[in-house]
Structures are given as structure tokens and as C-alpha cells.
Design a protein around this nucleic acid. Structure first.
Lengths: 125, 125
DNA sequence: ATAAACCTTGGAGTCGACTCAAAGGCAAGC
DNA sequence: GCTTGCCTTTGAGTCGACTCCAAGGTTTAT
């Protein structure tokens, strides 16, 4: 699969896919005879992974670190697990914050539904 | 309450509080005789609001828009409600994505717990 | 009354993450 | 065989959101 197809499939700009690879946030992608990137399923799994992580707010730097470990093979298993656990905690915290805001805005919209005037109201009890 | 106290209370750098105000992401804060910012409860409610929204990924631009509307008073009620509803949708989408990633990473950590070798595994089924 | 610790502004600098541009190679259709 | 459209790299530019700095005013403690 060429870069444009992958770009469309995952809705990620081709420039971003190249950028991620250049930075080392995903492993190097195989090339065809012309030197064009030719993504296989594994490459795309890595893209999915990176996309998820990025959407959850994980930095490129962390992804690079994970890939670095992955390159190190079996002996980095523990380190990788630790890294993921660490990120999991960060994501959880973020998740709770977003959930909190969602609930608050939701209430606020309710207020707008039922209240009068230029009511602002408290967001935090 | 002076800026340093507010900064500590909400754990937001004073520079950021000034920045938000300068941009119009929160309404102007009252000043004392010396020209120093003197935050009252309402100011702090706005800071809470901005903090929540920012944590949920809402841009400064949106906050400015909301404040602009708020300045317009009663006649902007509908527009404000619409804006919040719109943001609510965006936050919801983000929330689902983050939740999704959380679950995936969680599974991945489980895999590391039970699996052998340099197993990467699929993240997306 | 002088230093330390606040505060002010305007503007410049930084940082992460893209995003674009230039210069050029390959490939398919007319 | 030439145009169109894709691909390559390197390097520079942009953007949002801070973050810091300089120059200067105020307040508090000694």
C-alpha cells in the first residue's frame, strides 16, 4: 500500500506519516524498487498505535522511546511494559479530566435550557 | 486575591493567567489601586471554566468566542448554547477516542503480563 | 530607607507537532 | 516521448499556546 492510500485509510496527512517515521515514532517502512514506501499490515498496525496514542495526548517523544525499546528486543520487555503502564496512568488522568469537563458542559447546556437572563452559573461546586 | 495566590490555587502559571486574559479567553479581571489584578469569585469561576475547557482540548479561540458572546448579553444566549453544544460534541468524540486508547493500552499491558518474546500484537482488531 | 518580593506591560523567544516548498525521480496514459 | 500525478528528501516555515525577559512601579519587612 502506498503512502497516499494509507493516508486516506487512516485520515492522516502523508506529511505526518513521513514525519512520524522520520522522528522514529513508528519503525521504518519497507520500500519498493523505486524507493517508494510500501506499507504492509504490520506498518499499518504501528500507524494505528501511533494514531491512538497521539489522540490520547501521548507525545511523539514517548512513542520514539517505545520504538527504541522495541528495537532492543526481548530484553526490553519489562521496560516497555513499564513505559506503557506509565502512559496508561497519564491517559487515565486525562480521561478523568475530560469526563469531568464533559459533565460540566453538559450541565451548563441544561442551565441554558432552563434558565433566564445572561446566567453564567458556577461550573465547579 | 492576587495573581500568585490564584496561580497556586489552580496550579496555573501566572503568565498563563495573564495570557488568557490578554487573549480574551477569560473576561478582564478587576484591579486594585496599584493596578494589580484582584481576582474575585466570579473571576475564579471563569478561570475554572477555562481550565476545564483547555484540559478537554478546547482551543483558546473557542473560549474567546464564548466570552465575546457573553459580553453581548442576553441576546447571545442561543448562540452561546449552540457553541457549548458544538464543543460538547467535540469533547465527546475526544473522550471516546481516549477511552478507546485507554482500553487498548490496558489490553496491551495485559499481553505483556501473559505473553512471551518480543510480541507486539495487533492493537486494532 | 533600602532591599526583597511582589506586581505591571509589551514584546520576544520557545516548544511540539506538524506542514509546506523546492528540486528532482518514477510510472501510467495519450 | 511528454504530461500528469504520484513519490522522494532536506530544510524551512507555521501555528497554538505558552513562557520568558526587560524595564519599571508598589508593598512589606527590617
Amino acid at each position: 500500500m502506498k503512502i497516499k492510500e494509507v493516508s486516506q485509510k487512516y485520515n492522516i496527512p502523508a506529511d505526518t506519516l513521513r514525519y512520524w517515521e522520520r522522528q522514529g515514532a513508528i519503525p521504518p517502512v519497507n520500500r519498493d524498487e523505486a524507493g517508494y514506501r510500501d506499507y504492509d499490515q504490520e506498518d499499518m498496525d504501528w500507524i494505528s498505535f501511533a494514531q491512538c496514542m497521539r489522540e490520547a495526548g501521548v507525545s511523539i517523544e514517548y512513542l520514539i522511546e517505545y520504538i527504541e525499546l522495541f528495537k532492543g528486543g526481548k530484553k526490553t520487555l519489562e521496560a516497555r511494559k513499564d513505559l506503557l503502564r506509565e502512559q496508561l496512568k497519564v491517559i487515565k488522568r486525562h480521561l478523568d479530566e475530560v469526563q469531568n469537563t464533559y459533565d460540566l458542559i453538559n450541565k451548563k447546556v441544561q442551565n441554558y435550557e432552563t434558565h433566564v437572563e445572561g446566567y453564567h452559573g458556577k461550573l465547579i461546586k
